[in-house]
């Protein structure tokens, strides 16, 4: 590798800090510069990083830290604490209504993020908790999107509702809801097409679904490898549609996953699950503290 690994560098910085008896303001600033580099290398949004470093610095340069017996240790602790609090301090469960009622979940996100796969993964998870789940094919654009959902639904033993490719997604969603009520399903998962946040017509389509149907949880699916654009995407989806929860996919790769921090920081919405592979069982609970360590490369 051409560049020294930033996480190694960071480890050294922290080690040096820990070993120091006294810290100068310059010591703190120099080490926070390394932290900044590591966060940027992990794809955390530039603006989020700036804000983060500022608030850590304010705490770290405070008298109680500088005068403490182990100032280095204190700074490391602050970085970690602030990062975890930014990630959301505790794990959040996906909220479902009482089983006697129908809960509607809507998958949404950019193209190729992992919505269809995750919809099927979720369906399996909820089915194993005793729910009766209906998967709904609302992607009428991508070639073979319906077939993809059907194949995955079959693997999960979950019924797939489709009205073909010639209906508007909002009508398909309404039809599915009616069907679910009549046939005693209590969870409906809408698989929608991938769309860019700047595509007005496509964003309007999601708004329509929300206007015509009670969507309990609009779930933004985000590729964990996303770079600086993650904040733009999350902000627009949150403003225009409203995000209730986030699912981060493809964390079985070696990305540091800084997008998680960006999305959480700009929307304040909880990350619920992480995708850990292509298999339909590869969906796990999200733990903020583990993610914080991963982003820092520790």
């Amino acid at each position: 590798m051409a560049f020294e690994s930033l996480s190694d560098k960071l480890q050294n910085v922290f080690k040096n800090l820990r070993g120091k008896g006294r810290l100068s303001e310059a010591d703190v600033k120099a080490s926070l510069k390394e932290v900044k580099m590591a966060l940027l290398e992990a794809d955390v949004s530039f603006k989020v990083v700036k804000q983060f470093i500022k608030s850590v610095e304010e705490r770290a340069i405070g008298a109680d830290v500088m005068n403490s017996l182990t100032p280095g240790q204190q700074v490391v602790k602050i970085v970690h604490e602030e990062l975890i609090s930014l990630m959301g301090s505790e794990t959040t469960e996906l909220k479902l209504k009482n089983p006697s009622d129908v809960t509607v979940l809507m998958m949404m996100g950019l193209q190729g993020a992992g919505k269809t796969t995750t919809a099927a993964k979720l369906a399996g998870k909820l089915k194993s908790k005793g729910r009766k789940v209906l998967l709904v094919a609302c992607d009428v654009y991508r070639p073979a999107a319906i077939k993809q959902l059907q194949v995955n639904g079959e693997k999960q033993g979950v019924e797939v509702f489709t009205m073909g490719e010639n209906q508007k997604p909002v009508n398909i969603a309404k039809g599915a809801y009616e069907y679910a009520r009549k046939n005693n399903f209590n969870v409906v998962i809408l698989d929608t097409a991938g769309r860019l946040h700047v595509d007005e017509d496509m964003m309007e389509e999601l708004q329509q679904i929300k206007e015509n149907l009670h969507v309990d949880q609009a779930l933004l699916t985000v590729d964990a490898m996303t770079g600086q654009d993650a904040v733009n995407v999350a902000t627009v989806f949150n403003d225009k549609i409203g995000i209730d929860g986030v699912i981060l996919t493809k964390l079985d790769g070696d990305t540091r996953g800084g997008a998680a921090l960006s999305v959480k920081a700009v929307t304040g919405k909880p990350i619920l699950y992480i995708g850990m592979g292509e298999k339909l069982s590869d969906l796990e609970q999200f733990y903020p503290d583990r993610m914080a360590s991963r982003i820092l490369g520790m």
């Binding site: 794809d43 590729d223 996303t226 770079g227 990305t255």
Partner: peptide, 11 residues
């Protein structure tokens, strides 16, 4: 490579 990908694209 997905144009929205960050640093992982290098790897």
């Amino acid at each position: 490579l997905d144009g929205t990908t960050g640093q992982n694209a290098l790897e």
